[in-house]
Design a protein around this nucleic acid. Structure first.
Lengths: 235, 235
DNA sequence: CCAAAAGTGTTTGGTTTACACCCATGG
DNA sequence: CCATGGGTGTAAACCAAACACTTTTGG
């Protein structure tokens, strides 16, 4: 049995993939190999196939491009303007992903001509993809101000100065390091390691790992991770 | 030109419509007039038509059911499990709406057999609609803890005790009235009126109206409208 | 030995909470 | 005149922000 006299529409999933290389927040884009808009940059996406739920479609896309599974992936928004795709009407469900850039497997994505772009150097993208990226940035800022989400971008072991530089990049601000480390440590989510990262200073900075049990239990609690969030531009 | 060899899917919009009658938060549901699931309760929804964007579809659905335009309407989530509709695969984009229940025009919705349900008396709904309602409740709690969104549910003129009872209903808690009114008034969003509502007490409670200019300007700022939000259950 | 980054403590001001009494009035 | 709900103030605890010096070590 089917619903008759109803119009069926193409449904796509597009992924906004954020990565952090220890210095800067970046976005993974692909260069389209096919017409229309051949050679233009775009988000990685694909049509939803029969038998594939939306979240499965998003995970599949992410895996095809990066080789990664079990990544942080969250539904952002459905985009459904009638003419957003000039070829044929397509509703796109967007997901944003946070990945540790070092786990990204380059060879997989060469077939898609993928490249990481710094957030302030994002090229013109096809369709409404720039708008999607803007919305994802806002959502990330909003969410990271309240929840310890940015740990998803970091490697297993990381230092507090690295974490601070990630926050500073995302909010385009500079935070006081004494207040920052106090605030982060007071969440109780970090476990100090015995060894240090000596790459970026002579003294070296202690590594920390995330306490996964507490992280999962406390993820939805409101934290106050950003000073004066009121004046920042959110969703 | 079209994308060939791709499967097109039914796309629906379903609306989770919240209303407040001065006492309790309620949800507007309709009783299906047609098979399948005839006579079962469901959210108001409809298929997205050609030439209709998602947000327009949501507004149209709301207008057909309630007669209202310009209502607060926000996209919630896309639901896309493969078998969520047993008749035929349908991706549903959900929107939640906040309306002043007194503006709702009953005669319009009689053709849909619509009824308001108290939040703790929601019947079993078709498909995954109960899940959609749960998500909308969580989103409302989450959002109302940070943004002055609940004014959308109130009539033009309202009293602080009314507002407090709305918050208390949503969070299933009791708040200290001194702290509550101080907090709300300190947002600067309320303008005190000269007249009083004398329906619910002998002394009467002063009416307030929303300062729309400040409301629109400050909507995205983080407020701290709920005491101890940490222990409440959110998204 | 010194430049460069890591690490840490205190004071101050503001915000949040807990808490109790008086006010106005319709019946 | 009294029961009912409306309205308000204060003190204590807590939290956030501003701020500067010491430590470590590779070169």
């Amino acid at each position: 049995m089917k619903y008759s006299h109803q119009t069926r529409i193409l449904v796509a999933v597009d992924c906004i993939i954020f990565g952090f290389d220890g210095e800067k927040l970046k976005l993974l884009l692909i260069q389209r190999g096919i017409e229309p808009e051949k050679n233009k940059w775009s988000l990685m996406g694909g049509f939803v196939e029969p038998g594939e739920s939306l979240s499965l479609a998003a995970n599949n896309i992410l895996k095809k491009l990066t080789g990664l599974e079990g990544v942080y992936l969250e539904q952002l928004q459905a985009f459904g303007e009638v003419n957003r795709d000039p070829i044929e009407r397509t509703v796109s469900i967007t997901y944003f992903a946070l990945i540790d850039i070092h786990k990204y497997e380059k060879q997989l994505s060469q077939e898609y001509h993928a490249e990481w772009f710094e957030m302030n150097k994002i090229p013109e993208l096809i369709f409404d993809h720039n708008e999607m990226v803007e919305m994802a940035k806002k959502r990330l800022r909003y969410k990271a101000a309240l929840h310890p989400i940015l740990f998803e971008l970091l490697p297993e072991k990381f230092t507090i100065p690295q974490l601070q530089s990630l926050y500073e990049g995302i909010y385009d601000s500079v935070f006081d390091k004494r207040n920052f480390s106090r605030k982060i440590l007071s969440t109780g989510l970090l476990i100090k390691q015995a060894d240090k990262d000596k790459l970026s200073s002579k003294k070296g900075a202690f590594y920390y790992v995330l306490d996964k049990r507490k992280y999962n239990a406390n993820f939805h609690a409101f934290l106050n991770l950003i000073p004066n969030p009121d004046h920042l531009q959110f969703v």
